[in-house]
Computed example of a mutant assay.
Amino acid sequence: MNKIKLKLSQFLKRIDNQWQQLSLEKQHQYLLTFFLVYGLFSVIVFIKIGFDVASNKESIHVEHIKQPFQNSKDSNSVIDSSSTIHKKM
């Protein structure tokens, strides 16, 4: 576990040093590009969700759940195991 922490720490320090060596203009350019791409993806997802909601004209039909063995008068029918009572003797 300590080896993983050490390697991760070294990797993050190396990346941070590379970032610090960049000029401020280059850092600004990278951050601006990142946020523009993030914003573009967000807008695309919101538009897609809007189209999906607007185009879906179906509504959910809600009704009572029918119990399969409630009306069954057949003695050979399977009984739900959760409704059987087990007695210890």
Rank of each mutant, 00 (worst) to 15 (best):
M1N: 11
K3H: 13
L6V: 09
K7H: 09
K7A: 12
L8P: 08
L8A: 15
L8I: 15
S9Y: 05
S9G: 11
Q10P: 01
Q10K: 04
Q10C: 06
L12P: 05
L12H: 13
K13S: 06
R14C: 07
N17R: 13
N17S: 09
W19Y: 10
L22P: 01
S23Y: 01
L24M: 11
L24Y: 11
E25C: 04
E25S: 12
E25Q: 13
K26L: 07
K26C: 09
Q27E: 12
Q27M: 14
Y30H: 05
L31G: 09
T33W: 04
T33E: 08
F34K: 10
F35Q: 01
L36N: 07
V37W: 00
V37E: 06
V37H: 01
G39R: 00
S42N: 03
V43I: 09
V43E: 00
I44A: 07
I44K: 02
I44T: 07
I44M: 03
V45Q: 01
F46I: 04
I47R: 00
K48G: 12
K48D: 09
K48I: 11
I49D: 06
I49Q: 03
G50Y: 07
G50M: 10
F51S: 11
D52V: 00
D52F: 00
N56P: 01
N56A: 04
E58C: 01
S59G: 02
I60D: 07
H61W: 12
V62H: 04
V62K: 03
K66D: 06
Q67T: 00
P68G: 06
P68Q: 11
N71S: 07
S72V: 15
K73L: 15
K73G: 13
S75P: 15
S75D: 14
N76P: 07
S77V: 05
V78E: 14
I79D: 11
S81D: 11
S81A: 06
S81M: 04
S82D: 04
S83F: 12
H86S: 13
K87Q: 10
K88G: 12
